[in-house]
Every structure is written in structure tokens, then in C-alpha cells.
Simulated assay, not measured.
Amino acid sequence: MKPFRLFLVVAATLLLSFSVRAAGLLGAEALVARHGALGPQLSSNAFGGPLVLQSEELSRRIEGDVFAVLEHPFAGVSAALSDPSQWCEILILHLNTKYCRRTDAQGAPHVQMRVGRKEPQAIEAASLLDFVWHPPQARPDYLSVQMDAPKGPYDTGDYRLFAEAVPLEGNRTFLHLGYGMSYGGASQLAMKLYLATVGSDKVGFTRVQDAYVAGVRGVVERNTMRYYLAIDAYLDSLAAPSGQQLEKRLQAWFDATEKYPRQLHEVERDAYLRMKRDEVQRQGTGR
């Protein structure tokens, strides 16, 4: 790949892998109210399941939300999402995540990610995002977790990734997942060039005037869906014996993305599985 094109792809990946609308943590009461307000959309939508996906492009900031009902008990969701190490096992499922580990710096946990291409890539060739992990709020009726990265490569910054959840009847959980990041002039140019060239045929899930949204909103929606599917696949895998969990979640994540080939198909199954098995192995060894 030519150096300039590689710059466009990597810069756009960093901008858009985390480009989902961050409305901010709502809190327990407001999240319960939001579940009630979204009832009609959760019960009838184009996804075929209880999911609401929102996206928005702001001035030099990209933000987004996903609201979804998980078929998992709240206690299990809370235990998994309040652990930064388990977040790394979730985030590595995404095509662009090359490496993730939980570290400590100045007495605070960090989640360090390397983000790059949708193909095998050396860790040192992928770009670093260093998230500060904030202590979670974990109660019997509410969970909230948040991590922030003040700086990123290619003129990006103010990254925020959070999740909050409340229990529902029937051993289910209502999840709110949010992301957001800001970018400067150089990143804005890279994003425009990417969307005009490499990413010109990509679309999202929302239909406006009988057409799927494209551009920044399209990428926002694709990546929001990928991260939601990663959480769901990870939680599903925990019911399997420990030696089978990795393969179960890799297969489940790929199968889930293939339900939306127009938006999410990027690589073939065998290529994805080979790449992710290798990346998870090196993630475990710290190399």
C-alpha cells in the first residue's frame, strides 16, 4: 500500500472506529426512563432485535449511542463490563483492534489499544490509544463505566468510551454504549479524502429518503454496531467451557456481522479467524 494511501486509511480508521455519539452517562433513573421511551423502537426496527442506533456529526467531533436489550442477566453484564481486562477481550474482536491490554500508570488503571488495518499488522505499526480507566459505579440496580484518552494520533483527542446498564425483568439487561472523539484540521482532511476514495461505497444503517446514510454517519453506524456485537458475542461466550470461549466469541462476532453484509462485510471468515487467533495469542503474551 502506498504511504499516502496508508496514511488516509489509518487516520480515518482512528477517527471512525471510535466515532459514535456520546450523549454521556444518563444515570440509573434516566436510563430506566429511556428504556420506556424507546419501547416502540426497540420492539420494531430494521435490525430484527431490541436495538436503537443513533448517530450524529458535529463540528470537529463525532459522537454516537447504542441502546440495546441484552439477553444476559445484569449481574453477569456488570461483572464483565466493570473489569478493564475483559474490555480488552471485547475490543479485540473488532477488525481494526490489533492489540489491547490493561496496564497501570501513576496508580490508575489504563486500557491501552493499538488500532490499525483490517489485516494482519505488527503491533508497533498500529496506532496507540491510551485510555484512563475510571472507577466503575457498580450497584445491584445500575452499572456505569467510563474511560478517556485525552490524546490520539493524527490530530485527534478527547476520546471517550462508556457503558451503563440497568437490570430488566426476565434476566435481561438494558445497555447504553457511547463513544466520542474530537479531531483537528489534519484529521478532518484525511477523513474527507478517505470518504471520497477508499470509503466512498460504504453505507450505514439509517435510511433517509429511501437511501442508506453514507459518509461520516455511515462509518459511525457501522462501528457502533461492531462494538455492540462484540459485547454481545463476548457475553454469550462466557457460558461455554473456558477452553472454548475464544473460538465461540470469534465465530459469533463474525456470524453476527454477516447478517448485515451491505454494511459490515469486509473480510472472509477464514481470514478474520486466522488474524484474530494470532492477535489474541500475542495479546496474551504481551508481545
Rank of each mutant, 00 (worst) to 15 (best):
Gly199Asn: 04
Tyr159Cys: 02
Thr206Leu: 05
Arg102Lys: 15
Arg117Phe: 12
Ala190Thr: 02
Ser85Asp: 06
Ala46Phe: 03
His134Arg: 15
Val220His: 14
Asp270Arg: 14
Val111His: 01
Met225His: 06
Ser59Phe: 10
Gly199Cys: 09
Ala233Phe: 02
Arg61Cys: 11
Gly180His: 02
Arg277Val: 10
Lys192Cys: 08
Gly36Arg: 08
Glu221Val: 07
Val66Ile: 14
Leu95His: 03
Pro84Cys: 06
Leu168Pro: 00
Asp130Phe: 05
Glu71Met: 05
Leu235Val: 03
Gly49Lys: 11
Ile123Leu: 11
Gly184Glu: 04
Met225Asn: 06
Ser200Ala: 15
Pro40Glu: 13
Arg101His: 08
Tyr260Leu: 12
Leu246His: 05
Gly185Cys: 06
Ala214Tyr: 02
Arg217Asp: 08
Pro40Gln: 12
Trp87Asp: 06
Lys118Gly: 13
Lys151Met: 13
Pro140Ser: 11
Ala239Gly: 05
Ile62Ser: 09
Leu42Met: 01
Tyr154Asn: 04
Ala233Gly: 05
Val203Trp: 00
Asp158Pro: 06
Ala240Tyr: 05
Glu268Gln: 14
Ser182Gln: 14
Ile62Phe: 07
Asp270Trp: 07
Arg226His: 05
Tyr234Gly: 09
Trp253His: 09
Phe74Trp: 00
Ser242Cys: 10
Asp65His: 08
Phe47Gly: 05
Leu175Asp: 00
Val216Trp: 00
Arg249Cys: 11
Gly185Ile: 10
Gln188Glu: 15
Ala252Leu: 13
Arg117His: 08
Met1Phe: 03
Tyr227Thr: 12
Arg34Glu: 12
Arg21Ile: 14
Leu246Phe: 08
Ala190Pro: 06
Gly24Ala: 07
Ser237Leu: 06
Ala28Asp: 06
Gly48Asp: 03
Ala108Cys: 13
Glu63Leu: 14
Leu177Asn: 01
Ala37Phe: 04
Ile92Gln: 10
Gly184Arg: 05
Leu25Met: 10
His176Asn: 02
Tyr272Gln: 04
Asp236Cys: 12
Thr285Tyr: 02
Lys98Ser: 12
Pro50Glu: 08
Lys192Tyr: 04
Asp210Trp: 03
Pro167Gln: 00
Val111Ile: 10
Leu93Cys: 03
Phe7Asn: 13
Arg114His: 06
Lys151His: 08
Pro50Tyr: 01
Leu42Ile: 01
Arg282Met: 06
Phe174Gln: 00
Val220Gly: 14
Glu268Val: 14
Met191Arg: 14
Pro140Leu: 11
Tyr183Asp: 02
Asp236Phe: 07
Gly116Gln: 04
Leu58Pro: 04
Asn223Tyr: 08
Ala37Asp: 07
Arg34Thr: 13
Asp130Ile: 13
Val166Lys: 01
Ile90Cys: 04
Ser55Gly: 04
Ala30Thr: 10
Tyr179Gln: 13
His134Asn: 14
Leu273Glu: 00
Ile92Phe: 01
Thr156Tyr: 00
Glu258Gln: 15
Leu58Cys: 10
Lys2Pro: 11
Arg114Pro: 04
Leu143Asp: 02
Gly243Arg: 01
Ala11Leu: 09
Arg269Leu: 15
Trp253Gly: 07
Asn171Leu: 11
Ala165Val: 04
Val52Trp: 01
Ala33Asp: 09
Leu195Ile: 07
Ala22Met: 13
Ala186Ser: 10
Ala12Ser: 13
Phe67Asp: 04
Asp65Gln: 13
Ala126Phe: 03
